[in-house]
Amino acid sequence: MSRFDTLHTAWMDWDGPTPAREGVVLEYSRELEKFLAEIERRAFRMAQVALRDADDALDVVQDAMLKLTKNYASKPSSEWRPLFYRILENGIRDLQRRRSVRNRIMTWLPGPKEDPDNEAQDPLESVADAATPIPERLMQDQALQQLEISLRALPARQREAFMLRNFEGMDVAETATAMGCSEGSVKTHYSRAVHALREQLGEAW
C-alpha cells in the first residue's frame, strides 16, 4: 500500500477532532512536492535531449507538473511517475508537431531561416566543474554530445523507451504505462533503440 493510501485510510478511520484532515492534506502535499523535486531534473534533461532547447524543455516540464498536480494528484503515489512521464512525452510530441507545422509555414514566408542547431547557449552552462580535470570533463562532454545526437536520431518511441528504461530506471510495466503501449512493445522499442545506438556510437561504447 502506498503512503498516500495509508494516509487516506488513517484519515477515514480517524474519529478525533477535525484538524487531522489538514494534517493529512499537508503531508500529502509534501509528498507530492518531494516527488516532483526528486524527478524534475531528470525530466528536464530528457525533455532537453528531445527538444534541443532548454526553455522549451522547462515549459513542458512545468506543464507536466501542473497537469499531474491538478488532475492526477489524488492517484496513489506509486502511479505518479508513469503518469508524469506520459504527460511529459505527450507535451514533447505536441511541441514537436507545432514546430513541424511552424517550419512548414516558415518555408513559404520570405526572410532569414532559423538554424535549429544554432542555439543561444548560456555561458554558465559551459563552465567546467572545478573539481574535475578539464580533459576528462571535455571527453565526457563530447561523449554526452554524441549520445544526445544519437538519441535524437532515434524514432520517438525508441528514444522514449530507452530513456525511461535506462535513464529513469523504470521497469517494463511502468514504461508501458508511461508510453501507453503494451509491455511487449516496450521490449521491442528498447531492444531496437540499443541496437541503433550501438550502430551509431560504434564499438568503443
Partner: peptide, 17 residues
C-alpha cells in the same frame, strides 16, 4: 545542471503546487 536552471525548475514546481 547549472544553478540558474535548478532555480527555474524549483520555481516551476512551486508554481504548479
Amino acid at each position: 545542471l547549472d544553478m540558474r536552471m535548478r532555480s527555474r525548475l524549483t520555481q516551476a514546481r512551486h508554481a504548479a503546487l
